[in-house]
Amino acid sequence: MATNPSTYSPSQSSERKQLQQQRRRLFQETDWTRFDGRGFQQCRPAFLKTGAASAASGSAFAAFGATKVIVSVFGPRESKKAMLYSSTGRLNCNVSYTAFSTSIRGQSSDHKEYSSMLHKALEGAIILETFPKTTVDVFALVVESGGGDLPVIITCASLALADAGIMMYDLVSSVSVSCFGRNIVIDPTSEEEACQDGNLMITCMPARNEVTQVTLTGEWSTAKINEAMELCLDACSKLAEIMRSCLKEAASAPS
């Protein structure tokens, strides 16, 4: 388990292995309760707030259970790289994890691809023609990683963009589901994600009923995919409602 040769945690790793084995057996059964007491189709409570970083044009903070993310948006600013005139703007996304975001220090998974996935999720929603020749920078910082990181990052980034006043066709919200045998569990935590059989993540624009990004891993039957997608889309639209009320609240603050 050691990522760094000079550290090791002897008793912790053997404990963890035991717990994992226990859980795997648990997940294979048909009926089990989730560790945080949620039902299979219940998402974590979402806490969203705009205006977290004062130096940025727009920013947002999202806390979904144990997953906490800050996103700041800078721009539109002049594109630093000398580029030919382009009639559309540029979007630049960057996702980084803090060293203390995971319980084992320094271990952060796959976040290099998260930057490009965030880009793909957002570029369909932003009206790039409104800021030609300039760049919008989106920086996401995962402060605490508790599972379902990428959906939370995408949701928080969309909120930060709306806070920054960038024109968008619609708010983007994202939800993921895990499958365990025959059960479909929405909004998994990191422990559940570690033992999942498959994962489906959907990013969509709820008011326009358009899906901007879909990723699927594992073995799924068509019926299960249908069920999972319906579940996700429903959760996405509810999440968008929460985002909307958060923005309305921020907009009615006195000036």
């Binding site: 940025a56 700041s72 600013r77 920086f139």
Partner: peptide, 10 residues
Amino acid sequence: SPTAAPMFEG
């Protein structure tokens, strides 16, 4: 972190 200033990216 780049949230402090865009020049801290990368």
